[in-house]
Design a protein around this nucleic acid. Structure first.
Length: 419
RNA sequence: GGAGAGGUGACCGAGCUGGCUGAAGGUGCACGCCUGCUAAGCGUGUGUAGGUCAAAAGCCUACCGAGGGUUCGAAUCCCUCCCUCUCCGCCA
């Protein structure tokens, strides 16, 4: 969330952010609540101060055997007033908090303003679109020829969008995951985390999925728990409510998890094969850093994600998201889109974001800076990367004319280790 | 799921027959003193958030797992919930 004091003194800036991010949040209502709350808080403090003072006098009188009945009577009415004010204050605070949670993060100053992805900026491209002496097949046709996927059976046991990987396909996907994990561990200095896939409401609020995206997530009603849409959620919240020491920063975590997304409202869009799924696997990088180094960390993480695609020899491009395409919690985001020659499209395989102190405020993740002062850390995360679309690019890029595959040796090595 | 024990500051640990207790004592940490070196010793300090203030100091308010309640007054009494530990049951 955004610092309430900042909102109070820079309402226009916040209003612009809400507009540019295509969010709808009522800032005026929030400011009014804030005003009311401050008044009530002042009143409460006054009464409380009086009560504390007199209570001590009563204590002293009683100890010395004096008569406190007059004071007790006065305090009776003060106690009533306190109760009344406190009741209202509790109400207002809850409402204020709820409203505050609907205010999106501010885009970083250099982020281009735009309504949708058409205003995104192409930052760079790596490699070239591979050329084929034949018409390349798409991944679904290749999966069929090589018996890598069974989408109908996935649909039978769960529903559409739940893939079943078969035989070599299953092994390949697992190899891809392991390859990425080991790459980040060995070359990029992350440490691995294995985390819960089902988390509570507080955790979902901490990273900013709630309240906005409630209907996009799978929910276990009986326990009020949510299936994670990304490892960002459990990993970032690992340190919720903690005060980190300067010595342990920066923290760099990598975790592999399945991800679950209802994809409500996107039916019929990019649904062929593995393009858009309800369940998929992803390797995610998360960093906790000191504020002054978060922008540098963002560029580093982008390179960490790019390294995976480069090691696999896949052509891709990097796009910077405009304000309208930026997520609720992000201040700046790069997307990496890998080229899928059979599908004929660039597919998003990674999203790398700096949330600055937005998530840290929500999840209350702080650290003591060099001068010993409490401050919020900055959090970042980036996919490193998501497997389904990476699988698409791999299959489609490394196909032969006869429909067989010639995959990068670095991947095949992951599954050919003898026991 | 059943029975019991417990959740206090960076940590350990008192308080829990309600009233100068934001919280004894210890450890740790910081600064200073002392000291051939080390170790020990001595002294001082050591929370977060909000408000007031131009700012600092000072002052006020809140916080002893979370939320309610009783009371003039709650870390202390009552209720609900969460978490941890032990035992039993069940189960991968």
């Amino acid at each position: 969330m955004i610092d309430l004091k900042f909102i109070r003194s820079n309402p226009d800036e916040v209003r612009a952010a809400i507009r540019n991010k295509n969010e709808k949040a009522d800032l005026d209502a929030l400011l009014e609540l804030d005003e009311t709350r401050r008044g009530l808080q002042f009143e409460f403090d006054q009464f409380k101060s009086r009560q504390n003072q007199v209570s001590q006098t009563i204590a002293k009188l009683k100890r010395e055997g004096g008569d406190a009945s007059a004071l007790l009577e006065e305090m009776g009415s003060v106690a009533e007033k306190i109760k009344a004010v406190n009741g209202r204050l509790t109400e207002i605070n809850a409402e204020l908090e709820a409203r505050l949670l609907t205010i999106p993060n501010l885009p970083e100053a250099s982020v281009p303003v735009g309504r949708d992805e058409s205003s995104n900026i192409l930052v760079k491209t790596w490699g070239e679109q591979p050329s084929f002496a034949f018409t390349p097949l798409d991944h679904l046709e290749l999966a069929e020829k090589n018996a890598l996927l069974d989408m109908p059976r996935g649909a039978k046991i769960s529903g559409s969008g739940f893939p079943v990987y078969t035989g070599f396909g299953a092994r390949l996907e697992r190899a891809v995951i392991n390859f990425m994990l080991e790459f980040h561990l060995q070359r990029h200095g992350y440490s691995e985390l294995g985390v819960p896939l089902i988390v509570n409401r507080k955790t979902m609020t901490g990273t900013g999925q709630l309240p906005k995206l409630e209907t996009d997530m799978y929910h276990v009603d009986e326990d009020d728990l949510f299936l994670i849409p990304t490892a960002e959620v459990p990993v970032t919240n690992i340190h919720a409510g903690e005060v980190l020491s300067l010595a342990q920063l920066p923290l760099k975590y990598v975790a592999y998890t399945p991800c679950f997304r209802r994809e409500a409202g996107s039916y019929g869009k990019d649904t062929r094969g593995l393009q858009r799924l309800h369940q998929f696997n992803k390797v995610e990088m998360v960093r906790f850093v000191e504020p002054q180094s978060s922008w540098e960390a963002l560029e580093e993480m982008l390179r960490d994600a790019e390294d995976i695609l480069q090691a696999l020899g896949l052509h891709y491009r990097v796009v910077q998201l405009c304000t309208g395409d930026l997520s609720f919690a992000s201040a700046k985001t790069y997307d990496i889109e890998v080229w899928a020659p059979g599908t004929g499209k660039y597919l998003e395989v990674s999203s790398v974001s700096n949330f600055v102190d937005f998530q840290a405020r929500r999840a209350n993740i702080r650290y003591r800076d060099a001068s010993g002062k409490m401050a919020f850390v900055h959090t970042l995360n980036g996919s490193g990367v998501a497997t389904p679309r990476l699988m698409i690019a791999l299959l489609e890029t490394y196909q032969r004319q006869d429909g067989s595959l010639e995959l990068p040796p670095i991947l095949l090595r992951q599954m050919d280790r003898p026991l």
